[in-house]
Write a protein that binds this DNA or RNA. Sequence first.
RNA 1: GGAGGGAUCGCAUAGUGGUCUAGUGCGGCCGCCUGCUAAGCGGUUACCCUGCGAAAGCGGGGUCGUGGGUUCAAAUCCCACUCCCUCCGCCA
Length: 412
Amino acid sequence: MLDPKFIRENPDLVRESLKKRRDSAPLDEILELDTERRRKLIELEDLRRERKEVSRQKRAKVEEGRDLRVMIKGLEDEVRNIDEQLAELLLQVPNVPHPSVPLGKDDSDNVVVRTSGEPKSFDFTAKPHWQLGEKLGIIDFERGVKLSGSRFYVLEGLGSHLQRALINFMLDLHTSEHGYKEIYPPFMVKRECMVGSGNLPKFADNLYHDEIDDFWFVPTAEVPLTNLYRDEIISPGILPLYHVAYTACFRREKMSAGKDTRGIKRGHQFDKVELYKFTDAENSNDELEKMVSNAEVICQRLEIPHRVKQLCTADLGFASQKSYDIEMWAPGCEEWLEVSSCSNCGDFQARRANIRHRPTPESKPEFVHTLNGSGLALPRVLIAVLENYQQPDGSIVVPKVLKKYVGVGVIK
RNA sequence: GGAGGGAUCGCAUAGUGGUCUAGUGCGGCCGCCUGCUAAGCGGUUACCCUGCGAAAGCGGGGUCGUGGGUUCAAAUCCCACUCCCUCCGCCA
Protein backbone atom coordinates (compact mmCIF):
# COMPACT_ATOMS: atom_id res chain seq x y z
CA MET A 1 0.00 0.00 0.00
CA LEU A 2 1.17 3.50 -0.73
CA ASP A 3 1.19 6.12 1.98
CA PRO A 4 -2.02 8.18 1.66
CA LYS A 5 0.08 11.22 2.52
CA PHE A 6 2.48 10.38 -0.28
CA ILE A 7 -0.42 10.11 -2.73
CA ARG A 8 -1.90 13.36 -1.46
CA GLU A 9 1.39 15.21 -1.85
CA ASN A 10 2.52 13.56 -5.10
CA PRO A 11 -0.62 12.87 -7.12
CA ASP A 12 1.12 13.48 -10.44
CA LEU A 13 3.95 11.13 -9.68
CA VAL A 14 1.47 8.40 -8.75
CA ARG A 15 -0.61 9.06 -11.84
CA GLU A 16 2.51 8.80 -13.96
CA SER A 17 3.54 5.53 -12.32
CA LEU A 18 0.13 4.01 -12.94
CA LYS A 19 0.43 4.94 -16.58
CA LYS A 20 3.87 3.31 -16.80
CA ARG A 21 2.47 0.15 -15.30
CA ARG A 22 -0.63 0.25 -17.49
CA ASP A 23 -2.68 0.04 -14.32
CA SER A 24 -6.08 1.64 -13.81
CA ALA A 25 -6.26 2.12 -10.05
CA PRO A 26 -8.87 4.76 -9.09
CA LEU A 27 -6.54 7.57 -8.13
CA ASP A 28 -8.98 10.47 -8.47
CA GLU A 29 -11.56 8.74 -6.35
CA ILE A 30 -8.92 8.20 -3.67
CA LEU A 31 -7.90 11.86 -3.70
CA GLU A 32 -11.50 13.01 -3.37
CA LEU A 33 -12.30 10.60 -0.57
CA ASP A 34 -9.14 11.56 1.25
CA THR A 35 -10.09 15.23 1.22
CA GLU A 36 -13.61 14.47 2.34
CA ARG A 37 -12.35 12.27 5.12
CA ARG A 38 -10.12 14.94 6.55
CA ARG A 39 -12.88 17.52 6.37
CA LYS A 40 -15.23 15.31 8.34
CA LEU A 41 -12.50 14.27 10.73
CA ILE A 42 -11.88 17.86 11.76
CA GLU A 43 -15.58 18.28 12.42
CA LEU A 44 -15.72 15.06 14.39
CA GLU A 45 -12.70 15.87 16.54
CA ASP A 46 -14.22 19.24 17.34
CA LEU A 47 -17.37 17.57 18.60
CA ARG A 48 -15.42 15.05 20.64
CA ARG A 49 -13.51 17.82 22.33
CA GLU A 50 -16.79 19.50 23.16
CA ARG A 51 -18.14 16.25 24.57
CA LYS A 52 -15.15 16.05 26.86
CA GLU A 53 -15.81 19.51 28.19
CA VAL A 54 -19.52 18.91 28.65
CA SER A 55 -19.11 15.62 30.45
CA ARG A 56 -16.57 17.16 32.75
CA GLN A 57 -19.41 19.20 34.16
CA LYS A 58 -21.12 15.98 35.12
CA ARG A 59 -24.89 16.10 35.31
CA ALA A 60 -25.21 19.82 34.64
CA LYS A 61 -25.51 19.55 30.87
CA VAL A 62 -27.19 16.24 30.19
CA GLU A 63 -29.40 17.55 27.37
CA GLU A 64 -26.46 19.11 25.53
CA GLY A 65 -24.43 15.94 25.96
CA ARG A 66 -27.25 13.87 24.55
CA ASP A 67 -27.31 15.96 21.38
CA LEU A 68 -23.56 15.74 21.08
CA ARG A 69 -23.67 11.99 21.35
CA VAL A 70 -26.09 11.72 18.46
CA MET A 71 -24.04 14.04 16.27
CA ILE A 72 -20.78 12.30 17.11
CA LYS A 73 -22.23 8.91 16.36
CA GLY A 74 -23.50 10.09 13.02
CA LEU A 75 -20.17 11.56 12.03
CA GLU A 76 -18.28 8.52 13.28
CA ASP A 77 -20.36 6.34 11.01
CA GLU A 78 -19.66 8.61 8.06
CA VAL A 79 -15.92 8.69 8.71
CA ARG A 80 -15.81 4.93 9.23
CA ASN A 81 -17.63 4.50 5.98
CA ILE A 82 -15.12 6.66 4.13
CA ASP A 83 -12.23 4.89 5.83
CA GLU A 84 -13.47 1.56 4.61
CA GLN A 85 -13.94 2.75 1.06
CA LEU A 86 -10.57 4.44 1.09
CA ALA A 87 -8.78 1.40 2.48
CA GLU A 88 -10.38 -0.76 -0.19
CA LEU A 89 -9.27 1.62 -2.93
CA LEU A 90 -5.79 2.12 -1.54
CA LEU A 91 -5.22 -1.62 -1.54
CA GLN A 92 -5.75 -1.58 -5.28
CA VAL A 93 -2.93 0.84 -6.02
CA PRO A 94 0.29 -0.92 -7.07
CA ASN A 95 3.74 0.11 -5.91
CA VAL A 96 5.54 2.95 -7.67
CA PRO A 97 8.33 1.61 -9.93
CA HIS A 98 11.85 2.61 -8.98
CA PRO A 99 13.36 5.21 -11.37
CA SER A 100 15.91 2.61 -12.53
CA VAL A 101 13.18 0.35 -13.93
CA PRO A 102 13.02 0.40 -17.73
CA LEU A 103 9.83 1.67 -19.28
CA GLY A 104 7.89 -0.95 -21.21
CA LYS A 105 4.52 -1.96 -22.60
CA ASP A 106 4.63 -5.70 -21.77
CA ASP A 107 7.03 -8.54 -21.00
CA SER A 108 8.73 -8.20 -24.39
CA ASP A 109 10.32 -5.01 -23.06
CA ASN A 110 12.08 -6.77 -20.19
CA VAL A 111 15.82 -6.32 -20.46
CA VAL A 112 18.36 -9.15 -20.39
CA VAL A 113 20.99 -7.97 -17.93
CA ARG A 114 23.44 -10.84 -18.25
CA THR A 115 23.67 -14.38 -19.55
CA SER A 116 25.84 -17.06 -18.04
CA GLY A 117 26.86 -20.40 -19.49
CA GLU A 118 26.56 -21.65 -23.06
CA PRO A 119 23.50 -23.66 -23.99
CA LYS A 120 24.80 -27.19 -24.32
CA SER A 121 24.81 -28.59 -27.84
CA PHE A 122 23.64 -32.18 -28.09
CA ASP A 123 24.65 -34.56 -30.84
CA PHE A 124 21.20 -36.10 -30.51
CA THR A 125 17.75 -34.62 -30.26
CA ALA A 126 17.19 -33.38 -26.70
CA LYS A 127 13.97 -34.70 -25.23
CA PRO A 128 11.52 -32.72 -23.12
CA HIS A 129 11.36 -33.62 -19.44
CA TRP A 130 7.93 -35.19 -19.64
CA GLN A 131 9.28 -37.84 -21.99
CA LEU A 132 12.45 -38.34 -19.97
CA GLY A 133 10.58 -38.45 -16.67
CA GLU A 134 7.96 -40.89 -17.80
CA LYS A 135 10.43 -43.22 -19.46
CA LEU A 136 12.66 -43.28 -16.36
CA GLY A 137 9.66 -43.90 -14.15
CA ILE A 138 10.33 -40.85 -12.00
CA ILE A 139 7.33 -38.71 -13.01
CA ASP A 140 3.83 -40.23 -13.15
CA PHE A 141 1.42 -37.86 -14.83
CA GLU A 142 -1.54 -40.20 -15.15
CA ARG A 143 -1.71 -41.08 -11.50
CA GLY A 144 -1.29 -37.43 -10.57
CA VAL A 145 -4.40 -36.68 -12.58
CA LYS A 146 -6.17 -39.66 -11.02
CA LEU A 147 -5.47 -38.30 -7.56
CA SER A 148 -6.06 -34.60 -8.03
CA GLY A 149 -6.90 -33.76 -11.64
CA SER A 150 -5.10 -31.76 -14.25
CA ARG A 151 -1.90 -29.90 -13.34
CA PHE A 152 -0.97 -32.51 -10.75
CA TYR A 153 1.71 -35.15 -11.02
CA VAL A 154 3.45 -37.68 -8.85
CA LEU A 155 7.21 -37.84 -8.43
CA GLU A 156 8.52 -41.33 -7.81
CA GLY A 157 11.75 -42.92 -6.68
CA LEU A 158 14.79 -40.97 -7.81
CA GLY A 159 12.56 -38.21 -9.20
CA SER A 160 11.24 -37.51 -5.75
CA HIS A 161 14.70 -38.00 -4.33
CA LEU A 162 16.22 -35.57 -6.81
CA GLN A 163 13.72 -32.90 -5.84
CA ARG A 164 14.46 -33.41 -2.16
CA ALA A 165 18.17 -33.22 -2.97
CA LEU A 166 17.66 -29.90 -4.70
CA ILE A 167 15.73 -28.53 -1.75
CA ASN A 168 18.44 -29.55 0.69
CA PHE A 169 21.21 -28.29 -1.56
CA MET A 170 19.58 -24.89 -1.84
CA LEU A 171 18.78 -24.55 1.86
CA ASP A 172 22.28 -25.65 2.82
CA LEU A 173 23.91 -23.24 0.41
CA HIS A 174 21.88 -20.20 1.44
CA THR A 175 22.22 -20.87 5.15
CA SER A 176 25.90 -21.77 5.19
CA GLU A 177 27.33 -19.46 2.53
CA HIS A 178 24.90 -16.56 2.18
CA GLY A 179 23.92 -15.98 5.80
CA TYR A 180 20.22 -16.71 5.61
CA LYS A 181 18.37 -18.12 8.59
CA GLU A 182 16.18 -21.11 7.83
CA ILE A 183 12.49 -20.75 8.62
CA TYR A 184 9.77 -23.38 8.50
CA PRO A 185 6.51 -21.44 8.39
CA PRO A 186 2.85 -22.52 8.27
CA PHE A 187 1.56 -23.36 4.78
CA MET A 188 -1.91 -22.08 5.67
CA VAL A 189 -2.39 -18.58 6.99
CA LYS A 190 -5.06 -16.18 8.13
CA ARG A 191 -6.71 -13.66 5.86
CA GLU A 192 -4.77 -10.73 7.36
CA CYS A 193 -1.52 -12.29 6.21
CA MET A 194 -2.73 -12.37 2.63
CA VAL A 195 -3.70 -8.72 2.87
CA GLY A 196 -0.34 -7.89 4.44
CA SER A 197 1.62 -9.44 1.60
CA GLY A 198 -0.59 -7.90 -1.08
CA ASN A 199 -2.33 -11.07 -2.31
CA LEU A 200 -5.74 -10.03 -1.03
CA PRO A 201 -8.09 -8.54 -1.90
CA LYS A 202 -6.94 -8.20 -5.48
CA PHE A 203 -5.73 -11.72 -6.24
CA ALA A 204 -8.22 -13.94 -4.43
CA ASP A 205 -8.79 -15.78 -7.71
CA ASN A 206 -5.33 -17.30 -7.54
CA LEU A 207 -5.59 -18.63 -4.01
CA TYR A 208 -6.94 -21.80 -2.44
CA HIS A 209 -9.10 -21.14 0.53
CA ASP A 210 -10.63 -23.21 3.30
CA GLU A 211 -14.15 -21.87 3.83
CA ILE A 212 -14.77 -23.43 7.22
CA ASP A 213 -11.85 -21.99 9.12
CA ASP A 214 -10.92 -19.15 6.74
CA PHE A 215 -7.45 -20.52 6.16
CA TRP A 216 -5.60 -19.47 3.02
CA PHE A 217 -3.04 -21.76 1.39
CA VAL A 218 0.21 -19.95 0.74
CA PRO A 219 0.97 -19.33 -2.95
CA THR A 220 4.60 -18.66 -1.92
CA ALA A 221 6.61 -18.58 1.30
CA GLU A 222 6.76 -14.84 0.77
CA VAL A 223 3.35 -14.64 2.43
CA PRO A 224 4.19 -16.15 5.83
CA LEU A 225 7.69 -14.64 5.78
CA THR A 226 6.36 -11.12 5.22
CA ASN A 227 3.97 -11.59 8.10
CA LEU A 228 6.52 -12.90 10.58
CA TYR A 229 6.98 -9.37 11.90
CA ARG A 230 3.51 -8.03 11.17
CA ASP A 231 2.48 -5.29 13.63
CA GLU A 232 5.93 -5.18 15.16
CA ILE A 233 8.59 -2.54 15.62
CA ILE A 234 11.98 -4.17 15.09
CA SER A 235 14.61 -2.99 17.57
CA PRO A 236 17.70 -1.05 16.51
CA GLY A 237 20.63 -3.10 15.27
CA ILE A 238 18.60 -6.09 14.07
CA LEU A 239 18.33 -5.26 10.37
CA PRO A 240 19.03 -6.56 7.84
CA LEU A 241 17.29 -9.89 8.41
CA TYR A 242 17.91 -12.67 5.90
CA HIS A 243 15.44 -15.55 5.89
CA VAL A 244 15.18 -18.64 3.72
CA ALA A 245 12.23 -21.00 3.77
CA TYR A 246 11.21 -24.12 1.96
CA THR A 247 7.45 -24.44 1.46
CA ALA A 248 4.99 -26.04 -0.83
CA CYS A 249 3.11 -23.41 -2.84
CA PHE A 250 -0.49 -23.60 -3.94
CA ARG A 251 -1.89 -21.65 -6.86
CA ARG A 252 -5.15 -21.92 -8.70
CA GLU A 253 -3.60 -20.67 -11.95
CA LYS A 254 -7.00 -19.61 -13.16
CA MET A 255 -5.48 -16.80 -15.19
CA SER A 256 -3.35 -19.16 -17.23
CA ALA A 257 -5.90 -21.87 -17.99
CA GLY A 258 -4.77 -23.95 -20.95
CA LYS A 259 -1.23 -22.56 -20.85
CA ASP A 260 1.78 -24.72 -20.04
CA THR A 261 -0.33 -27.80 -19.43
CA ARG A 262 2.40 -30.17 -20.55
CA GLY A 263 4.90 -31.47 -18.04
CA ILE A 264 5.58 -30.10 -14.57
CA LYS A 265 6.25 -26.48 -15.45
CA ARG A 266 3.04 -25.05 -14.03
CA GLY A 267 1.13 -27.01 -11.40
CA HIS A 268 -1.38 -26.16 -8.70
CA GLN A 269 1.11 -27.36 -6.11
CA PHE A 270 4.85 -26.93 -6.26
CA ASP A 271 7.84 -26.65 -3.99
CA LYS A 272 10.00 -23.61 -3.66
CA VAL A 273 12.90 -22.34 -1.61
CA GLU A 274 12.32 -18.68 -0.94
CA LEU A 275 14.75 -15.94 0.04
CA TYR A 276 13.44 -13.02 2.03
CA LYS A 277 14.99 -9.88 3.48
CA PHE A 278 13.93 -7.12 5.81
CA THR A 279 16.18 -4.10 5.34
CA ASP A 280 16.21 -0.38 5.98
CA ALA A 281 15.30 2.07 3.24
CA GLU A 282 18.86 3.05 2.38
CA ASN A 283 20.17 -0.38 1.48
CA SER A 284 17.28 -2.20 -0.09
CA ASN A 285 18.37 -1.83 -3.69
CA ASP A 286 21.89 -3.03 -2.95
CA GLU A 287 20.36 -5.91 -1.05
CA LEU A 288 18.27 -6.75 -4.10
CA GLU A 289 21.39 -7.09 -6.24
CA LYS A 290 22.94 -9.36 -3.62
CA MET A 291 19.81 -11.46 -3.45
CA VAL A 292 19.79 -11.96 -7.21
CA SER A 293 23.38 -13.15 -7.13
CA ASN A 294 22.59 -15.44 -4.20
CA ALA A 295 19.92 -17.08 -6.32
CA GLU A 296 22.17 -17.19 -9.37
CA VAL A 297 24.79 -19.14 -7.45
CA ILE A 298 22.38 -22.08 -7.48
CA CYS A 299 22.34 -22.00 -11.29
CA GLN A 300 26.12 -21.74 -11.40
CA ARG A 301 26.72 -24.63 -9.02
CA LEU A 302 24.27 -26.76 -10.97
CA GLU A 303 26.14 -25.67 -14.10
CA ILE A 304 22.99 -24.84 -16.00
CA PRO A 305 22.94 -21.98 -18.53
CA HIS A 306 20.86 -19.09 -17.27
CA ARG A 307 20.19 -15.42 -17.73
CA VAL A 308 19.00 -12.51 -15.61
CA LYS A 309 16.31 -10.16 -16.85
CA GLN A 310 15.17 -6.89 -15.40
CA LEU A 311 11.41 -6.49 -15.58
CA CYS A 312 10.05 -3.39 -17.26
CA THR A 313 7.39 -1.15 -15.71
CA ALA A 314 4.48 -3.00 -17.30
CA ASP A 315 5.61 -6.44 -16.14
CA LEU A 316 6.44 -5.49 -12.57
CA GLY A 317 4.52 -7.35 -9.86
CA PHE A 318 1.84 -5.48 -7.93
CA ALA A 319 3.89 -4.99 -4.75
CA SER A 320 7.26 -4.60 -6.41
CA GLN A 321 9.20 -1.43 -7.14
CA LYS A 322 12.03 -3.27 -8.91
CA SER A 323 12.36 -6.89 -10.02
CA TYR A 324 14.71 -9.31 -11.73
CA ASP A 325 13.81 -12.71 -13.14
CA ILE A 326 16.28 -15.55 -13.48
CA GLU A 327 15.67 -18.00 -16.30
CA MET A 328 17.30 -21.38 -16.92
CA TRP A 329 17.64 -22.77 -20.40
CA ALA A 330 15.74 -25.99 -20.98
CA PRO A 331 17.01 -27.65 -24.16
CA GLY A 332 14.23 -30.26 -24.28
CA CYS A 333 11.22 -27.95 -24.35
CA GLU A 334 13.48 -25.32 -25.89
CA GLU A 335 12.55 -22.41 -23.72
CA TRP A 336 13.87 -20.17 -20.98
CA LEU A 337 12.24 -21.23 -17.72
CA GLU A 338 11.56 -18.65 -15.05
CA VAL A 339 13.12 -20.21 -11.95
CA SER A 340 13.27 -17.09 -9.82
CA SER A 341 11.81 -13.66 -9.48
CA CYS A 342 13.55 -11.31 -7.07
CA SER A 343 11.79 -8.13 -6.02
CA ASN A 344 12.35 -5.13 -3.85
CA CYS A 345 8.95 -4.14 -2.50
CA GLY A 346 10.29 -1.07 -0.75
CA ASP A 347 7.97 -0.16 2.13
CA PHE A 348 4.86 -1.25 0.22
CA GLN A 349 4.33 -4.57 2.00
CA ALA A 350 5.68 -3.22 5.27
CA ARG A 351 3.00 -0.54 5.24
CA ARG A 352 0.25 -3.06 4.61
CA ALA A 353 1.60 -5.45 7.19
CA ASN A 354 2.66 -2.65 9.55
CA ILE A 355 6.27 -3.73 9.95
CA ARG A 356 8.52 -1.01 11.26
CA HIS A 357 11.94 -0.66 12.79
CA ARG A 358 13.74 1.86 14.92
CA PRO A 359 17.07 2.83 13.33
CA THR A 360 18.40 4.04 16.69
CA PRO A 361 16.91 3.86 20.19
CA GLU A 362 15.91 7.52 19.97
CA SER A 363 14.39 7.53 16.51
CA LYS A 364 10.78 7.31 15.41
CA PRO A 365 9.71 3.98 13.91
CA GLU A 366 10.17 3.73 10.14
CA PHE A 367 8.71 1.21 7.77
CA VAL A 368 11.17 -1.49 6.77
CA HIS A 369 11.83 -2.48 3.20
CA THR A 370 11.01 -6.04 2.20
CA LEU A 371 12.59 -8.12 -0.54
CA ASN A 372 11.72 -11.54 -1.79
CA GLY A 373 13.16 -13.90 -4.34
CA SER A 374 12.92 -17.53 -5.25
CA GLY A 375 16.05 -19.40 -4.55
CA LEU A 376 14.78 -21.34 -6.54
CA ALA A 377 11.44 -22.77 -7.69
CA LEU A 378 11.78 -26.53 -7.68
CA PRO A 379 9.83 -28.04 -10.53
CA ARG A 380 11.47 -25.80 -13.08
CA VAL A 381 14.94 -26.47 -11.77
CA LEU A 382 14.06 -30.15 -11.92
CA ILE A 383 13.07 -29.68 -15.56
CA ALA A 384 16.34 -27.89 -16.29
CA VAL A 385 18.39 -30.59 -14.58
CA LEU A 386 16.63 -33.40 -16.43
CA GLU A 387 16.84 -31.73 -19.82
CA ASN A 388 20.40 -30.37 -19.52
CA TYR A 389 21.88 -33.54 -18.07
CA GLN A 390 20.16 -36.04 -20.34
CA GLN A 391 22.16 -38.58 -22.31
CA PRO A 392 21.33 -40.20 -25.66
CA ASP A 393 19.78 -43.24 -23.92
CA GLY A 394 17.46 -41.02 -21.87
CA SER A 395 19.38 -41.44 -18.62
CA ILE A 396 20.27 -38.43 -16.49
CA VAL A 397 23.68 -37.60 -15.10
CA VAL A 398 23.29 -36.24 -11.57
CA PRO A 399 24.93 -32.77 -11.31
CA LYS A 400 28.19 -32.85 -9.34
CA VAL A 401 26.91 -30.76 -6.44
CA LEU A 402 23.91 -33.04 -5.97
CA LYS A 403 25.76 -36.34 -5.90
CA LYS A 404 26.20 -36.39 -2.16
CA TYR A 405 22.49 -35.65 -1.77
CA VAL A 406 21.22 -38.21 -4.28
CA GLY A 407 23.70 -40.97 -3.66
CA VAL A 408 23.92 -42.15 -7.25
CA GLY A 409 25.72 -40.67 -10.25
CA VAL A 410 23.20 -41.49 -12.95
CA ILE A 411 19.43 -41.82 -13.01
CA LYS A 412 18.49 -44.56 -15.43
C1' G B 1 -15.53 -30.52 20.56
C1' G B 2 -16.78 -29.64 26.28
C1' A B 3 -15.78 -26.90 31.14
C1' G B 4 -13.23 -22.99 33.52
C1' G B 5 -9.63 -18.77 33.79
C1' G B 6 -7.34 -14.69 31.41
C1' A B 7 -5.70 -10.39 27.81
C1' U B 8 -3.99 -2.92 30.91
C1' C B 9 2.05 1.79 28.60
C1' G B 10 9.08 -2.93 26.75
C1' C B 11 8.20 -6.62 31.19
C1' A B 12 5.41 -7.30 35.90
C1' U B 13 1.22 -5.39 38.12
C1' A B 14 -2.88 -1.61 40.26
C1' G B 15 -7.34 0.15 38.63
C1' U B 16 -15.06 -2.49 38.88
C1' G B 17 -18.82 4.39 35.89
C1' G B 18 -16.45 10.93 36.56
C1' U B 19 -9.97 13.55 40.22
C1' C B 20 -7.47 7.85 34.73
C1' U B 21 -4.71 13.70 31.61
C1' A B 22 -4.01 5.22 33.25
C1' G B 23 -0.82 4.64 39.10
C1' U B 24 3.42 1.68 40.93
C1' G B 25 7.78 -1.49 40.40
C1' C B 26 11.44 -3.36 37.02
C1' G B 27 14.01 -2.38 32.61
C1' G B 28 15.69 1.57 29.05
C1' C B 29 17.46 6.61 28.18
C1' C B 30 19.47 11.54 30.14
C1' G B 31 21.68 14.01 34.20
C1' C B 32 23.70 14.49 39.40
C1' C B 33 26.68 12.23 42.99
C1' U B 34 30.92 9.09 43.25
C1' G B 35 38.73 6.38 42.67
C1' C B 36 35.81 2.47 39.20
C1' U B 37 31.39 -0.39 39.37
C1' A B 38 27.10 -0.96 42.20
C1' A B 39 23.83 1.67 45.18
C1' G B 40 21.45 6.41 45.78
C1' C B 41 19.01 10.97 43.92
C1' G B 42 16.33 13.82 39.98
C1' G B 43 14.14 13.72 35.23
C1' U B 44 12.33 11.03 31.14
C1' U B 45 9.99 6.78 28.65
C1' A B 46 4.42 4.24 23.45
C1' C B 47 1.85 4.43 18.89
C1' C B 48 -1.80 6.20 15.11
C1' C B 49 -4.67 10.07 12.76
C1' U B 50 -5.22 15.23 12.06
C1' G B 51 -4.61 21.06 11.94
C1' C B 52 -0.85 25.05 11.48
C1' G B 53 4.37 25.27 9.88
C1' A B 54 9.85 25.06 5.19
C1' A B 55 11.37 22.65 9.56
C1' A B 56 12.07 22.31 14.71
C1' G B 57 7.76 22.46 17.00
C1' C B 58 2.91 23.65 18.84
C1' G B 59 -2.41 22.32 19.15
C1' G B 60 -6.65 18.70 18.68
C1' G B 61 -8.55 13.64 18.50
C1' G B 62 -7.91 8.38 19.14
C1' U B 63 -5.72 3.75 21.16
C1' C B 64 -6.34 -0.51 28.12
C1' G B 65 -6.85 -7.89 22.82
C1' U B 66 -10.59 -6.61 18.35
C1' G B 67 -15.41 -4.87 16.86
C1' G B 68 -20.19 -3.18 18.26
C1' G B 69 -23.61 -1.29 22.17
C1' U B 70 -25.46 1.33 26.89
C1' U B 71 -24.41 6.36 29.21
C1' C B 72 -23.99 13.45 29.72
C1' A B 73 -19.41 10.37 30.82
C1' A B 74 -16.51 3.50 29.72
C1' A B 75 -10.02 0.37 31.10
C1' U B 76 -14.43 -0.21 34.28
C1' C B 77 -21.27 -2.15 32.42
C1' C B 78 -23.60 -5.29 28.12
C1' C B 79 -23.04 -8.29 23.40
C1' A B 80 -20.05 -10.70 19.71
C1' C B 81 -15.32 -12.23 18.10
C1' U B 82 -9.92 -13.35 18.40
C1' C B 83 -5.88 -15.17 20.97
C1' C B 84 -3.52 -17.40 25.33
C1' C B 85 -3.59 -20.68 29.79
C1' U B 86 -5.67 -25.10 32.78
C1' C B 87 -8.52 -29.59 32.66
C1' C B 88 -11.49 -33.35 29.79
C1' G B 89 -12.26 -35.69 24.93
C1' C B 90 -9.95 -36.76 20.12
C1' C B 91 -5.43 -37.27 17.41
C1' A B 92 0.05 -37.74 13.87
